[in-house]
Simulated scan of single mutants.
Amino acid sequence: MKNFFISLLIGIVFFSACNRAVNNEPQVAVSDFVEIRQENPNAIVLDVRTPGEFNGGTMEGAVNINVMDDSFTEEVEKLDKDATVMVFCKSGGRSAKAKQKLVDLGFTKVVDLEGGITDWKKAGGKVIIPQQ
Rank of each mutant, 00 (worst) to 15 (best):
V63A: 10
T50G: 10
E75V: 03
R94Y: 02
R37M: 14
R94L: 04
K121V: 12
G115E: 00
A21N: 15
V111A: 12
K78W: 07
T58E: 04
E39G: 15
A83G: 08
V30N: 00
V30Q: 04
D70L: 10
T118H: 06
E60V: 06
L46W: 05
E35A: 15
N19K: 14
P26Q: 13
R49E: 10
N19G: 12
A62T: 03
S16I: 12
G61A: 05
V87Q: 00
D70M: 10
S95N: 06
K109R: 15
I44K: 01
V87Y: 03
E60L: 10
I65F: 08
E114L: 12
N40M: 06
L105H: 07
F88C: 02
Q100F: 02
L79D: 08
L105R: 03
K101Y: 06
A62Q: 03
G61R: 01
T84C: 10
A43H: 08
L113Y: 12
G115D: 00
K90F: 10
R49V: 09
D112L: 09
N64H: 09
G52V: 08
F88W: 04
N66W: 11
K90Y: 11
M86H: 03
D119I: 02
A17V: 15
I65M: 05
V67D: 00
F72N: 06
S31P: 04
K121M: 08
T73W: 00
G92R: 00
N23T: 15
A21I: 10
D119H: 08
V110A: 12
K121H: 01
K78P: 08
I117M: 11
E39R: 13
M59N: 02
G92H: 00
W120I: 01
V111M: 11
D119L: 11
A21S: 12
F72I: 07
T73D: 14
V45K: 02
E53P: 08
E75A: 14
E35T: 14
G57P: 12
G116V: 02
D70E: 15
V30R: 05
F54E: 08
D119Y: 09
T50D: 11
T108A: 14
A83N: 14
G115Q: 01
K101V: 12
A17T: 10
D119C: 01
R94D: 03
G56A: 15
D47M: 10
W120V: 02
S71V: 05
L105S: 11
A98Y: 00
T84E: 01
I44H: 03
Q38N: 14
A43T: 06
G92A: 07
E74W: 01
G106I: 03
V110W: 08
E39F: 05
A43R: 03
K101R: 13
K90T: 06
A98R: 00
D112H: 14
P51D: 02
V85K: 02
K109F: 09
A62M: 02
V34F: 04
N40S: 09
G57K: 01
K121D: 02
G52I: 08
E75Q: 15
T50V: 09
R20S: 13
E35D: 14
K81D: 03
T50M: 13
K109W: 06
K109M: 07
V87N: 01
D69K: 04
P26N: 13
T118D: 12
A96F: 07
A17P: 01
F14R: 01
D82L: 06
V111R: 04
V110P: 12
K90E: 07
Q27Y: 08
A43L: 11
A21L: 15
I65W: 04
N66L: 07
L102S: 07
